[in-house]
């Protein structure tokens, strides 16, 4: 899915858009579709429209949101059949002049508390189960650290993508296995398990591998790749799960060994400056000794004025 659709920024939505919202009232135990008509403006997101409905038309509409800019991951919804963040979706992207209708539903695979608000308890429970934090054996060193742990840029790149997860739950609501299997850990938790298992600073990989080694863990995934297609942060949980599964199979066959790096230790002392070779010349009028002695001066005022 084109999560980042550059054309959406300049698209103009239809003047009036009909919002079909699936509502639910827990007191009455009643679920129904309700229609609202919203006047749009250029650059209006679905979240803006929902808030406009809440402020101007119907105060009883309940939804969860926070940052309005795809950072907090609170406003996941099913918009016209696609799991998306309401704050990241332009009305112009999902409604057209030919069909000025936006259908908003609460996310699938979650229990609905009210209207568009879903219950994340199960989701966070599963996230917690894979121990999403660095585990070190050496408690003394962990509690009173003197140096940071070594992490090479290429090691960092191998899990950086997976650490961008904002726990919005879109992957889980798109997952066809999660829809039928209540015990399945889900793409989010498994991607986080992988992110910590390959982190060279982590030593809790063995227990995490035991947790994910089951039909409800990593082997529940069957590569439908919907999670990767809907992820608003390009975390790519699908690829993370395939890597985790391959790694687990190799580990069980004794072909995989975890690389662990410890604290870096003290930095080397600053070395003496090597003298310049005799043929090297400085620019005319520049003296190296003077430069090293003098303080750095940045002409801030001039720069601002310029």
């Amino acid at each position: 899915m084109a999560i980042f659709d550059a054309r959406a920024a300049v698209m103009i939505p239809p003047r009036k858009v009909k919002f079909l919202i699936r509502r639910y009232n827990p007191e009455e135990g009643r679920s129904w579709w309700q229609e609202y008509e919203v006047e749009t403006y250029r650059g209006m997101t679905v979240l803006d429209a929902l808030l406009k409905i809440k402020e101007e038309i119907d105060h009883t509409l309940v939804l969860r949101y926070s940052c309005r800019m795809a950072v907090c991951g609170s406003c996941g919804m099913i918009i016209n059949g696609t799991p998306r963040l309401a704050c990241q979706t332009q009305v112009a992207e999902v409604a057209s002049e030919a069909r000025p209708v936006v259908k908003v539903e609460p996310m699938y695979n979650f229990k609905v508390i009210r209207d568009l608000v879903v219950d994340f308890t199960e989701f966070f429970e599963k996230h917690r189960r894979v121990k999403p934090y660095l585990i070190r054996r050496d408690v003394e060193e962990r509690e009173n650290p003197k140096y940071e742990y070594r992490l090479l840029p290429e090691e960092y790149e191998s899990f950086y993508q997976y650490s961008l997860c904002i726990a919005c739950g879109l992957c889980v609501s798109a997952c066809p296995v999660f829809a039928s299997d209540r015990r399945f850990l889900g793409p989010q938790a498994l991607a986080q398990a992988y992110r910590f298992i390959i982190d060279p600073r982590d030593e809790g990989w063995a227990e995490r591998l035991e947790i994910v080694d089951s039909e409800d863990g990593v082997f529940g995934c069957h590569l439908a790749a919907s999670c990767s297609a809907v992820c608003p942060k390009e975390v790519d949980p699908g690829a993370a799960i395939q890597r985790l599964r391959s790694l687990l199979l190799r580990y069980r066959l004794g072909l995989w060994k975890k690389k662990i790096s410890g604290p870096v230790g003290p930095l080397e002392k600053k070395a003496e400056r090597k003298p310049l070779p005799p043929e090297a010349e400085t620019l005319p009028g520049v003296s190296l000794e003077e430069l090293e002695e003098s303080e750095v001066e940045i002409p801030v005022d001039e720069l601002i004025a310029g």
Partner: peptide, 12 residues
């Protein structure tokens, strides 16, 4: 048996 063994056999 362990899930990983069954699935290894499934792939093999």
């Amino acid at each position: 048996a362990r899930a990983s063994l069954l699935y290894l056999l499934q792939y093999v």
